[in-house]
Design a binder for these strands. Structure first.
Lengths: 223, 223
DNA sequence: CGAACCCAACTTGTCTGAGGTGTAGAGTTG
DNA sequence: CAACTCTACACCTCAGACAAGTTGGGTTCG
C-alpha cells in the first residue's frame, strides 16, 4: 500500500508515488505510462496535479512526455541529487564536512593569499561586524566571509565543494539564529577576526585550527 | 529579447525563460518571484503552463514554492556536473581536495570504526597487496581501500564527496601508473598499512597524518 | 495484392474559472 | 509594547473545454 502520510503538496505526493512504482518496475525503462486521465483517476488526483507531478520527475530526468504519444520512462534511478542528499543528512554530518573543507582551505589560504584576497576578507569581516539586523542578512554576510577564505585558497575544487553547501547551510543557519541567537556576539566576531589574522600572517596551522575550533564550536552549540 | 525560436512545449520555453532571468540576477538567491498570475501574463502563457514550468525548475532544485508565501530562488545554477568541473581543474587541485576529505575522514574513522569496518579495510588492504597485474586493476583496489577508510568515518556527506571524485581520480591514476610505475612498491603498501593500523588503534592524529603524508607524496611524485 | 492516402480515436498541451488552504502583515486591543 | 485578530494575497487543486500531435486501421487506387 502507498504511504497514507499526507505531508505537503498533493503533486509532490503523486510524484513520489509515481517514482515508487517506476522503481518497483511497474513500467520498464523506455516504456509508456498509462494516459494522464487514467493515471490521475488511479492515483486519485486531478489531471493538472498529475501533470505537475510528471513535470517534477521530468525535471529530474526520470520521465519524458511526448505530445500525442505518451509519457515514457527515461531513467530508473535519479542521479542522487546533491541537494537531496544535503536535505536528508544530519546537520552534524554537514558540519564535519565543512570542517574538512574549510580547515584545509584556511591552511592553503595562509600559503597563497594575495593582498587582494586579504582586502576582500577584511572587507567581508567588516560587513559581518556591521550588520546584524535580520537573521537572513547576518547569514549572508557570514557565509560571504567564509567563502572569501575558501576562495583565497585558490583551489577551484574546494570552492566548488563549498558552494555546493551554501544553500543548505544558509537555510539551517537562519533557522538556528531565529531559534537561538548568538549569545556572545563579541567572541564570535573575534574568532573570525583571528582566522583572518592567521591567514594574513601566513600561519597555516593557526588558520586551520581557528577554522576547526569555530565550526566545532557551532556543532557544540547545536547539541 | 528572449529567443524567438518556438520549438516544442510552451512550458519548456517558459522554464528556460525563467532560468535565464534567474541567472541574469533579476531575482537574487533566496528572494521571491512575482506572483503566478503576474508572471504568467508577463511571459505570455497561462497559469497552468507557468506552474508546470515552475515544477520543472523545482525538480532541478532551482526553485521552491511555499504555499501562502510565494516562489523562491534556491540555487542560481543547476548542479554543475562534477565530471565537467573535475575535467577542467588541475590534478593538484583534486589532490588537495582529497587531502581535505580523506584526512578528516581518517580522523573520524579512528573514532568511529566498527570491527566490521576494520575487517573490510584489512580485506581491501590484502587485495591491494595481492594484485598488481594491470594498472586498471591496481587503481581499482587502491580506490576501494581509500573508499573503505572514508566509509568507516560514518559520514555520509564525506563519502558522497569522495564518490564524486572516484571516476576522475581513477582515470588520472591509471594514466600516471602507465607513465611512471610506483618505484618503491613496498614503501607504498607499508604507508597504507600504517594508515589502517592507526585507525585500528583509534589514533585520529596519526590516521590523519598518514593520509595527508601519502597524498602529498603522490602530489610530489607528479611534479 | 500492395502501396499510398485519409481519417477517426487517442494522446499530451494549453487555457480558463472557480474554490480551498496556508502565510504574512496590518490593525486592534489590553 | 506585546499579544491577538483579521484581512489580503499567495500558492494548491480541481473540472472542463479546446488545440495540437501521433498512431493505427480502413479505404482507395494502381
Amino acid at each position: 500500500m502507498a504511504s497514507a502520510v499526507q505531508h505537503g503538496r498533493l503533486a509532490a505526493q503523486a510524484a513520489e508515488a509515481l517514482l515508487g512504482r517506476i522503481r518497483a518496475g511497474e513500467w520498464a525503462l523506455g516504456h509508456k505510462l498509462p494516459g494522464e486521465t487514467t493515471l490521475a483517476a488511479e492515483i486519485g488526483v486531478g489531471r493538472s496535479t498529475l501533470r505537475e507531478a510528471i513535470r517534477e520527475l521530468a525535471g529530474k530526468g526520470v520521465l519524458e512526455s511526448r505530445q500525442g504519444s505518451g509519457v515514457f520512462v527515461m531513467s530508473t534511478d535519479i542521479a542522487e541529487d546533491w541537494d537531496v542528499v544535503l536535505r536528508r543528512v544530519s546537520v552534524a554530518s554537514v558540519l564535519e564536512a565543512r570542517v574538512a573543507i574549510e580547515a584545509e582551505a584556511a591552511a592553503l589560504a595562509a600559503h597563497r593569499r594575495t593582498p587582494s584576497d586579504l582586502r576582500a576578507m577584511r572587507r567581508a569581516l567588516a560587513r559581518r561586524s556591521g550588520s546584524h539586523h535580520s537573521a537572513e542578512e547576518f547569514a549572508d554576510v557570514d557565509m560571504a566571509l567564509h567563502r572569501q577564505v575558501v576562495a583565497a585558497s585558490h583551489n577551484e575544487v574546494l570552492l566548488e565543494l563549498f558552494d555546493g553547501f551554501v544553500p543548505r547551510v544558509r537555510v539551517a543557519m537562519i533557522e538556528m539564529l531565529k531559534l537561538r541567537p548568538i549569545h556572545d556576539y563579541k567572541a564570535d566576531q573575534a574568532a573570525h577576526a583571528a582566522l583572518v589574522e592567521a591567514i594574513a600572517e601566513r600561519d597555516p596551522a593557526a588558520a586551520a585550527e581557528c577554522s576547526r575550533a569555530h565550526l566545532t564550536g557551532v556543532h557544540r552549540a547545536l547539541s
